[in-house]
Design a protein around this nucleic acid. Sequence first.
DNA 1: CTCCCGATAT
DNA 2: ATATCAGGAG
Length: 209
Amino acid sequence: MIEIDLIIEKLKKMHGEPRCELKFSNPLELTVATILSAQCTDERVNRVTESLFKKYKSLEDYINAPIEELEEDIRPTGFYRNKARTLKNVALEIKSRHFGKIPDNIEVLAKIKGIGRKSANMIVGCAYNRPAIIVDTHLRRVAKRIGLTKFDDPQKIENDLKGKIPEDKQLPLSLLLILHGRYVCKARNPNCKKCELITECDYSKKGER
DNA sequence: CTCCCGATAT
DNA sequence: ATATCAGGAG
């Protein structure tokens, strides 16, 4: 039996209130930041978006930008050719099929080419403040280590946790687990000495899988 | 499974 | 040198 509330309390003790560390001021900005965040630290995304968001303020700005120029503007985030194509694609699709508004529905978002489950959940959760299980590389690693789920596949983890966790706690728990994965329960050299969850975590006892 | 890809920590 | 980083598509 997993005590969700206890885990949330301990995570808050370590990381403070749940928060998204990607900087944004509207749903479009979060969508862009999330696309750029693939295999890239949030810190580097924020460095790029600080200037990017001054230059690109609307869907049309992405749609009309020369692809080479957009590539240069996002280059430091890596995968820049894919990401530039994705940004233009997503902007065009949202303008033409969703009345220019970023959808607030996970299933609808995830159907857009370039937006997967993780990004869809991030956008719906953080831009629209609705229930979301954001299974990124951090949540996946941490959830497995502390025994929150036994699955490896992100979609299965999402479904599993959706069933186990009350809706109002899905978003805060997701954000806290991600913070925990970033700062304490790291892929390399997890800092188990600083971890409040050590008693409910069997990773530190048995070692990884 | 592979590819996309630059930046950073170890 | 190499593993890893708020992934997703083919």
